[in-house]
């Protein structure tokens, strides 16, 4: 079932085109990877899907679908603890707070939730933001560079979490430069180049994807 259908999406910042005539669709229960060079428009595409920026074209979303977005750089207000941030995120989705679930999830993330979140390291901040999204129980997860700044243990956990979300029939779109990781996790990998998605790789090895990207560069 189609969760999101994007038709002829165009986005520019003044005279600088970022996305041009981009069409793509995302189905339920699949993991999608998004690759592209720096400044290719990956984050802009995510912002368009979420509705954080204006665009031309059409983005059709399944009604009543909840989206959880993990930005590349997470911002936390000072003087707010990890627990308080999680409480806020759960309430924001209009859901009840389940302390047991929170504690169980933190067994995996190992975060000092009693400390102020703004004092966390980059990786810890990312983990906290992801933990909040997981507690929100969204239908679609958009993860912008989720592996950046995360330690070895965190990366392994993150991979497992993505696979467990897929098993729960959730949809995940993630951007990364780690093609081997994407190849391991994703059903499809979209290559964003020259302002549009030029290719969708399915069932190709890392070497084949890399060779194709280099040939298209």
């Amino acid at each position: 079932m189609e969760l999101i259908t994007i038709n002829h999406l165009t986005k520019d910042f003044g005279r600088t085109p970022v996305l041009q005539d981009l069409s793509v669709s995302y189905s339920t229960g699949k993991v999608y990877g998004l690759v592209g060079e720096n400044g290719a428009g990956k984050t802009t595409l995510f912002n368009c899907i979420i509705g954080m920026t204006d665009y031309q074209g059409e983005i059709r979303k399944k009604p009543d679908m909840s989206i959880g977005y993990l930005p590349a750089e997470n911002f936390f207000y000072s003087l707010i603890t990890g627990w308080e941030y999680l409480h806020f995120c759960i309430k924001a989705k209009g859901k009840a707070i389940d302390h047991e679930h929170m504690k169980a999830l933190n067994e995996k993330f190992q975060l000092p939730l009693d400390r102020y979140a703004s004092e966390y390291s980059t990786g810890m901040k990312k983990k906290l933001a992801l933990m909040a999204l997981l507690l929100q129980n969204n239908d679609l997860y958009i993860l912008d560079e989720p592996f950046n700044g995360v330690d070895l243990y965190g990366c392994i956990q993150l991979k497992r979490i993505i696979l467990s979300l897929k098993a729960e029939n959730k949809t995940i779109i993630l951007s990364s430069h780690l093609i081997n990781t994407l190849q391991e996790l994703c059903d499809n990998i979209d290559y964003l180049n020259r302002h549009t998605i030029v290719k969708r790789y399915t069932q190709l090895t890392t070497q084949e994807i890399e060779a194709d990207i280099l040939a298209n560069f």
């Binding site: 954080m52 909840s66 924001a92």
Partner: peptide
Amino acid sequence: QLTELALYRDFKTF
């Protein structure tokens, strides 16, 4: 940050 608004389920919940 605009992402803060995206955390809410809908405008009514916000």
